[in-house]
Design a protein around this nucleic acid. Structure first.
Length: 567
RNA sequence: GCGGGCGUAGCUCAAUGGUAGAGCCACAGCCUUCCAAGCUGAAGAUGAGGGUUCGAUUCCCUUCGCCCGCUCCA
């Protein structure tokens, strides 16, 4: 609902008063957040931003299609990212906040990679969780994270479990509750063996779940495949199993040496990639926010370990600014540094850029992008093999046979500074953004209702998508005021001329006010109208979507005027 | 995956164990000289599958999807 607070960025920079009033009203009535989100979802479908995938067959949970307007919006967002991060990057100057100059280059790698990529990276183990559900409390636990101990009292022997940090204390408390024994008589319970994980227990009927009040409420462990599995080869068997990538990043690490060897880039430099990724989410929810097929915009930035901390701060702030420059309001966007206990020990910093999506409860934010200092974790993994994330310093995780659980490539992915001859494993800063989430945030931010007078001066509710002109699906619409007196012909000429430069739309049907309102809903920032005056002095009006201001320019100057205002 | 709620036209809403109505939008035409105007016309729906029944949109079952909570996450 606070997206109704949208600041009028294109007119006078002031806050529209009636919007504020609406917001206050909304806050008072509680459920409005969902209602407002429904309006956006409805508009997205009605105007062709987003459709449910396979809708005529009943839809498919967690998959979404971009319609004619949506594809332009998303393309513009990805295009702006690529231009701002890669092709538009000035490698000759020191960017504000950066320690020194750096290079940027791109990559587009496959969605299906060698299965060992995911074993070495850790995704294979991480994404094959065994889970147990509690029938009584409907809670779900990672099978290997449930820990417990055998307890015996009143002639009954049970395995009491917990997932809490203070496990001994929690297990005792649970046991006392189950046996109905007061804390002062705690020694009536006898304990057998040390605390072990649940996967050591054969009979789940003797297990007390972490939050349960009775025995045997835990289901058998079930496998959750968070990576989509597929088969390579027409006659493929399980031996030929491969995975759709759950992130684009690994393709960059795997190609690190190729890029260094083929492009003359020197550290520090970044490799960018935009592409689809796939995660078999347990619960896709909240429109496109958590989709099973989604698109990422990722950079892996390689630098010397000594300067990595400065680069981390640079990218964190740079990425935050990118969103605000494209119109996300500072009110709804936060940069959240992870606390020390949230960080993996090999990371010296991770920050999330989060947006207060209207479908979230007040005060909660959804992640748009994570900027992580990953140290040398990834390159080392692909050299040596899967690292044990709990080891410190990091070591290769060994299997039961004492050999690496998952072997790496064995290739040398270190970097030699050609000037100093110093050889080192680069550290990595990873700004990883969700293209669909960014698109959704821009949609939410843009959605605005205001009141504008109709032709009789009566205030009417107007729905307008206030996209930044850079990402607006349609940049301008061209109208003849009426469909006669040669106006359509002049308008069509202007339309064809503009089409050479950007996405424009021509419409001559119906009343002019209706055509303006239609463009407001599509988020078109400018409308150009050919009217009676055009016939005399060859000027046309340009109408601003947000302020409704109109001004006249020579028809021949339309392109220049638009280009100036679209950048 | 579990628990609760919900599925009628593009949207908002009616109705019924017996021909599913309306408004808005969109479409065609007329009229229109700047913010969803008017007139005329045409078009459009019971999420899917099965069962009960002479007959099901209505009753029953299954399934799919959406919303809320748990779990996972960019």
């Amino acid at each position: 609902m606070a997206y109704l607070l949208a600041v009028d960025r294109f007119a006078d920079g002031g806050v529209n008063c009636c919007l504020v009033e609406q917001t206050i009203h909304s806050l008072a009535s509680g459920k409005v957040t969902t209602m407002e989100m429904e309006k956006l979802v409805s508009l997205c479908k009605r105007r062709g931003f987003l459709f449910q995938s396979s809708e005529i067959y009943g839809g498919l949970n967690g998959f979404w299609d971009y319609g004619p307007l949506g594809v332009e919006l998303k393309r513009n967002i990805k295009g702006a990212w690529w231009r701002d991060m890669v092709t538009g990057h000035d490698d000759l100057s020191i960017s504000p906040g950066a320690p020194e100059t750096y290079d940027m280059t791109g990559l587009d790698c496959t969605i299906i990679m060698h299965p060992n990529v995911w074993k070495a990276s850790g995704h294979y183990d991480l994404f094959h969780d065994m889970m147990v559900d509690c029938r009584q409390t409907n809670k779900r636990y990672r099978f290997d994270q449930v820990r417990g101990r055998w307890a015996e009292a009143k002639g009954q022997k049970v395995f009491v479990t917990t997932v809490a940090e203070n496990e001994q204390q929690e297990i005792e408390r649970q046991a006392q509750k189950l046996f109905k024994i007061r804390a002062k008589n705690a020694d009536e319970i006898s304990w057998d063996g040390a605390i072990t994980t649940l996967d050591q227990i054969d009979d789940l009927s003797q297990v007390l779940g972490p939050d349960a009040g009775e025995l045997g409420t835990l289901t058998e462990p079930r496998e959750f495949n968070l990576m989509f599995k597929t088969i390579v080869g027409a006659m493929g068997t399980e031996e030929d199993a491969a995975f759709l990538r759950p992130e684009t990043a690994q393709g960059i690490f795997v190609n690190f040496k190729n890029v260094v060897d083929s492009t003359r880039v020197k550290i520090p430099f970044g490799i960018a990639q935009v592409g689809k990724s796939f995660r078999n989410e347990i619960t896709p929810r909240n429109f496109t926010f958590r989709s099973r097929e989604f698109e990422q915009m990722e950079i892996e930035f390689f630098c010397h370990p000594d300067s990595s901390q400065d680069w981390y701060k640079y990218w964190r702030d740079r990425r935050m600014k990118w969103y605000t420059d494209l119109g996300l309001s500072g009110d709804r966007l936060i940069l959240r540094e992870h606390d020390a206990d949230e960080l993996s020990h090999y990371s010296t910093g991770t920050a999330d850029i989060e947006y207060a999506f209207p479908f979230l409860p007040a005060g909660e934010y959804g992640e748009l992008e994570g900027i992580a200092h990953r140290g040398d974790f990834d390159l080392r993994s692909h050299m040596e093999g899967k690292l044990d994330e709990k080891s410190n310093p990091l070591e290769v995780q060994l299997g039961a046979d004492g050999k690496p659980k998952w072997r790496g490539s064995g290739k040398d992915l270190t970097y030699r500074n050609p000037e100093t001859n110093e050889r080192f494993t680069p550290h990595v800063i990873e700004p990883s953004a969700g293209a669909d989430r960014a698109t959704l945030a821009f949609l939410c931010e843009a959605y605005t209702e205001d009141e504008q007078p109709d032709e009789k001066g009566k205030p009417q509710t107007r729905t307008v998508m206030r996209f930044h002109p850079r990402i607006a699906p349609i940049k301008a619409a061209v109208f003849p005021l009426v469909k006669k007196d040669g106006m359509p012909e002049i308008a069509k000429d202007i339309y064809r001329e503009l089409k050479q430069h950007c996405n424009v739309f021509y419409d001559e049907k119906g009343a002019i006010g209706r055509r303006y309102r239609r463009q407001d809903e599509a988020g078109t920032p400018f409308c150009i109208t050919v009217d009676g005056e055009t016939l005399q002095d060859s000027t046309v009006t340009i109408r601003d979507r947000d302020s409704l201001d109109q001004w006249r320019v020579k028809a021949d100057d339309c392109v220049a005027e638009l280009m100036k205002r679209l950048s």
